[in-house]
Structure formats: structure tokens, C-alpha cells
Design a protein around this nucleic acid. Structure first.
Lengths: 344, 344
DNA sequence: TTGAAAGCGCTACCAC
DNA sequence: GTGGTAGCGCTTTCAA
């Protein structure tokens, strides 16, 4: 395989095929198939092949004022939720000839990224996931120069977003705990005011209501979604008579279980734990963590689809909530022990 | 804050400042600072500000035949090793005015990506991490149209790469186990023939040699780096009299621990486990996993630095091996029990 | 069915 | 110091 040294341009192909560049362009883009004589097309294709012609992406972008690139900004990369969403978005984008420019920025830095990507004409549209507060995100998005769709949250003033149905997921998880016989169920939630945190709390309460179990604020703790927060929050729960925990994320559930073990609790006998979202990681914990699967990859796919539709001038449905997937029952959830709950 | 509707171009700025576009370009690029009259510069800056001028990235790229973008291709995103490398690379790249185009492709798909990114002039250079076999990667890279540097492995014919010193890391981990009193130490390695797998095995043997412990092939198992492979491999180790395991990755260590527990082993009393690479994840396992930190973020940074230097026409040192970081002693490593080793 | 030509927005060279 | 201008490689009218 000889390596092509000089990059061939349309002009080179045109010269070799003895036609005009415009004709080459037409043939190579596959447009207006009918309006080119077969023999000419043949000659052009052959020349392009021989010269190993590759279109210059930059030139095309400049001419068409489109980059065929979607930006996706996420708070972190090493988070199964976001990496799955990226995967989904990328697959769908590829199907439509778009590629994805991934940008991961910590809190507060999203602004720069959003502004940069869109204002420098690097992307035609933006998929944005953010953990920032509403006001911050709001002003960041004001800088956006291109259409965008929000991932995993809603925001007033941002018409397009794709979210997971956290409420239903929380309800489902809690309901399962109830079905096991638990009646004192703690909730490890997200930070107060967060979109998903409120949704999950609502689902939790709905399941309780349905079972005729009174809601007890003492059983609800709020924190961020970190391991440390999970540990800290569980220290409060431990002072109650809770026999089970419904955690917002895998990581906070892991924190809770670690802290419980450190305090000498037997898992899952003395405390059942279930978490929202599923990933390989759940299986690696001890005991292997029961979860509710969430369609995170589909979230990315749907969001990209929405954005591309919008870019094409369509008028897509603005908000979508994706229902949770199956319960993944592993080893961290059992019926409560018949005797009195452990007290500390 | 009024939103700029029409994108302002150099021409607009020039018109408003009543100068030529070339002058505007000079001023705005900050070049040849001296050769512009202060008053003119002032006027231009003011106009640019008023018009909210943003350079068109695409146009600049086309004109300069440079994208100021580095591509990084990794096998997966939700892998702390790669996401840390990405972070490091991105930071360094940003310092030099480059951005990063992240591409994550599964085995075998890397070819497409490498070819696409480089041949379509989307990137000036490539950082590539791959789990593919040597021959595959080799032919993929042959398609590359731009300079590249390999991440986390070496490959004959690929002059530039940045790797972690896996050998030294494995030696260090094994040495620690020896210092605890273990003499029958198993190794959960990577697939035979892999660059890092060989390095780690060498480090493992070096530590054994140094301690005067004979090498026993029965204590060495090879697999990929997955949870399942860790579980499977440990079933062989369990038939030996090993009292400790040195695992290549966090995930395979997690698999080993899970399998051991399922078989009723007490951890860490009956089996110590240490793994290479460190991440939050290690702390979430039970028992919390002891590790050797690896400078994965620095690997990304150094690789990007190397690439940018090369792009600038420099002649950087071709291969770098980054020494391991500290031992992170957690709860999975203890001295072997005084009595006879558990036999199955 | 094909060709000619006008730019997309920018940088860099050459004048003055 | 500043202006004029060519052209990066491509798409897309408009003519022929």
C-alpha cells in the first residue's frame, strides 16, 4: 500500500478526469445522480480512486456554513450515565452524517465551552448535560449561538430536553422494597432543588402513598451524588429504624454500604439497598447491588435525534421523558428481618 | 444582554473601524503588536467589541491548513485510565491553543476513526490508545495522514509513544506483598502478548527474584482485564496455595474478590489482593482495595506535549515511560495467616 | 449534461 | 503602519 503523499483536491481529480471541478463535486457528493452521464461519472470515480481523493472537511464546512458536527458537553467522562449518553448520541449522529465533539467541563466551566463551541462555528448544535444550578446554566445557554437540547434535566426557558423518568424509577424501586416487606425505607437523594432530586422524591412518596405508608421526613437525606455524601447521609439514616434504602445513584449507594459495613452492619440482612441506574459497577460491589436500569444510552440517542431534526428545520416534540428499564435484582435487597429493627 | 443576531465578520469590523480587513486581522490576532498605531488598534478593538466579533474557526483553518485540533482515540470512555488521560491531554492542549476531538471506538473500529479524522483534515495530529493486536493497530496507523503518538503502549514502527512503567509498578506491588510476608503470590495478568502484560509479568518476577522466591508458572493467570476474566482466573489460583494476588487492573481485582467471597473466603484474611492503577472505585470495593497509583493523567499530558512539540517541528524524545506513583494501602492487603494456607 | 465563476471568512504576502 | 489582494478547497447558482 503506497502512501499518498500529497493530498489530492477536487482540482486534481477534475484534471485527471478532464472535466470541471463542479462536475466532480456533483458526482462525488452523490447528488443529482440522474443528471450526469454514466460514462463521465465512471471516469471521475476512477480518477478519485486513483488519486485517493478525500474531501476537505474544512473547506466544505466553510462553503456550506455547516460543520456537520454536534457538540456534547458533559460534566464528567468517567461516569457511566454520561458515557452511555455519549455513545447513544454518537451512534445516532453518525447515522445522519454528523460527528460528535465531546467536551467535558467541570462545574462553572460549561459557560466557556458552550460559548466557544458555538460562537466559533465549531458545531451546528449542542447537547448539554450539566450539574450546574439553574441560574448558572441559564446564563451559560444565553451565550449559545446554535440550537441546543438539554440532557437529563429540564429548565424553564429551554424548550428542548430529553430526560429520564426519575420519578417513575424511584417509584418502582421503592415499590419493590415495599413488596419485600419493608415499611421504613430511607431515601438517599440528590441536592435539594435539583430537577431529578425532586422527581425522585416524588416517586418515592408516590410508592409510599400507594402502600399506605406514612411519609417521614427523617428518612430522607439529601446530598450530592458522591461516595462521601453517601457515607455521610447514611449516618443519619442509621439513627432511624429504617430497614432499607433507596439511593439515587450507584455511587451514593456504594458509599452507604461502605459506611454501614464499617459500622458493623450485616448486609443485606440488616439493611437492604437499591439504587437507580445500572452499570457493570453494580455487580462489583458487595453485596452486588440491586438497581433499576435507566435508558441512558437511549437518552443520548433521542436527544441527538431531536437536535438533528431541529437542525433540519423540523418541529420536533420539545420534551421527552424516557421510562425506566427493568429492575435488576441482585444481592443487596432482601426482606426485613422478622425481629425488631436494629437500633443504634 | 442583547443577543447578536448576525454573526459579524472581519469585513464588518473593518468597515466600522474604517480600516482594511488585513489590519483588523493583524490587530485581532495579536501579532506584530509593534507595527500598529495605538490609536488604530483602539478603534479596531472597540469595533470588534461593539459587534461582538468572533473569529470564524473554519475559515481560519482552511486558510492556514491547520485545525488546531488534536484527535484522541480511546477504546472506551467509562474507564478511569482513559478518561484521566483525556483530561491530561485536554489540559495541556488547551494551554497551547489546541482543542481535543475525542473518539472512542471499540476494537477494530479504530481504523475507520484514525483514517477519517486524519484524512478529512479534522485534526493536526492524533493521540491513540488501543487494545487491538499489534498487527491490526499497525495497519490502522498506516492510514494516518498526520503525526501521532501512542498512548499506553509501544509498537515497533511507531516512534512516538508515552507509556506507564508497568514493570516497575508490578514490581512495587509484588514487593509490598512480599514485605507483608507473602511468599506464594498469584498474578492476574493481561492477555498474552500484550505490551503491558509482558511488562507486568517481568516486574512481578523481578520482585520475586529479589526476595529469593522461586517463580511458579502455576501462580500466573492470563486473561483480559474484565470483571468476568478476574473471576474466572481466580478459580485457578484457588487451587494453589497462594495467599495473595497481584492484579493488573482494578476491575479484574474486583472480579477476583467477588469470586473468592462467593466461594466463602474471608477477605483479606485468607487472601490479600493488590491491583495496579488507582481510582475512586478502589475505595468502593469491599474490602477497599490496595493499589499502586499510576500517572494516567500525566500520560495524557505528556503525550499531548510530545505531539504538539512534533507539530511545531521540534524533535522530541521519542519514548517516555512514566514511573508509578505511591502505594495506596487500603484494607485488602494483610500479612498471611500464621497457620497453613487454606486449601480447597 | 457540463462548464464558468462567485464566493464562504480568513491570513499572509507584497506594495506603498 | 496600513491597504490591496490572492487564494485555502469546496459548493452552487447561472449559462450554455
Amino acid at each position: 500500500m503506497r502512501k499518498q503523499r500529497q493530498k489530492a483536491t477536487l482540482v486534481d481529480v477534475a484534471a485527471m478526469a478532464e472535466v470541471d471541478v463542479s462536475t466532480v463535486s456533483r458526482v462525488l457528493r452523490g447528488q443529482s445522480e440522474q443528471r450526469i452521464r454514466a460514462e463521465t461519472r465512471e471516469r471521475i470515480l476512477e480518477a478519485a480512486e486513483k488519486l485517493n481523493y478525500r474531501p476537505n472537511f474544512t473547506a466544505r464546512s466553510l462553503r456550506m456554513s455547516r460543520t456537520f458536527t454536534l457538540g456534547i458537553v458533559v460534566p464528567q467522562l468517567d461516569n457511566p450515565v454520561f458515557s452511555a449518553a455519549i455513545r447513544g448520541a454518537e451512534n445516532l449522529a453518525a447515522q445522519h452524517g454528523y460527528s460528535l465533539l465531546i467536551s467535558h467541563r467541570d462545574l462553572g466551566e460549561a459557560a466557556t465551552t458552550i460559548a466557544k463551541l458555538s460562537q466559533m462555528n465549531r458545531v451546528d448544535g449542542l447537547l448539554v448535560a450539566s450539574l450546574d444550578a439553574d441560574e448558572v446554566l441559564h446564563s451559560d445557554l444565553a451565550e449559545a449561538n446554535v440550537p441546543y437540547v438539554l440532557l437529563n434535566r429540564q429548565l424553564s426557558g429551554a424548550p428542548f430536553s430529553v430526560v429520564l423518568d426519575s420519578r417513575e424509577a424511584a417509584r418502582k424501586a421503592t415499590e419493590y422494597l415495599v413488596s419485600l416487606g419493608h415499611r421504613r425505607i430511607g431515601h438517599l437523594g440528590g441536592r435539594l432543588g435539583g430537577f431529578n432530586a425532586a422527581e425522585r422524591l416524588a416517586g418515592y412518596r408516590a410508592a409510599l402513598d400507594a402502600a399506605g405508608i406514612p411519609f417521614d421526613p427523617a428518612l430522607v437525606t439529601m446530598g450530592d451524588y458522591t461516595f462521601g455524601a453517601g457515607r455521610k447521609a447514611v449516618r443519619e439514616l442509621v439513627r432511624t429504624d429504617a430497614t432499607a434504602i433507596m439511593a439515587a445513584t450507584l455511587v451514593s449507594a456504594a458509599g452507604a454500604m461502605a459506611e454501614l459495613r464499617l459500622a458493623g452492619w450485616q448486609l443485606p440482612e440488616e439493611m437492604s439497598v437499591i439504587a437507580l441506574h445500572d452499570a457493570d459497577f453494580a455487580e462489583m460491589l458487595f453485596p452486588a447491588l440491586s438497581t433499576v436500569m435507566m435508558p441512558t444510552e437511549e437518552m443520548g440517542r433521542v436527544a441527538a435525534d431531536l437536535l438533528i431534526r431541529k437542525l433540519a428545520g423540523g418541529n420536533p416534540e420539545p420534551v421527552r421523558a424516557l421510562p425506566p428499564g427493568s429492575l435488576m435484582i441482585r444481592d443487596s435487597t432482601v426482606a426485613p428481618r422478622p425481629g425488631a429493627p436494629r437500633s443504634k
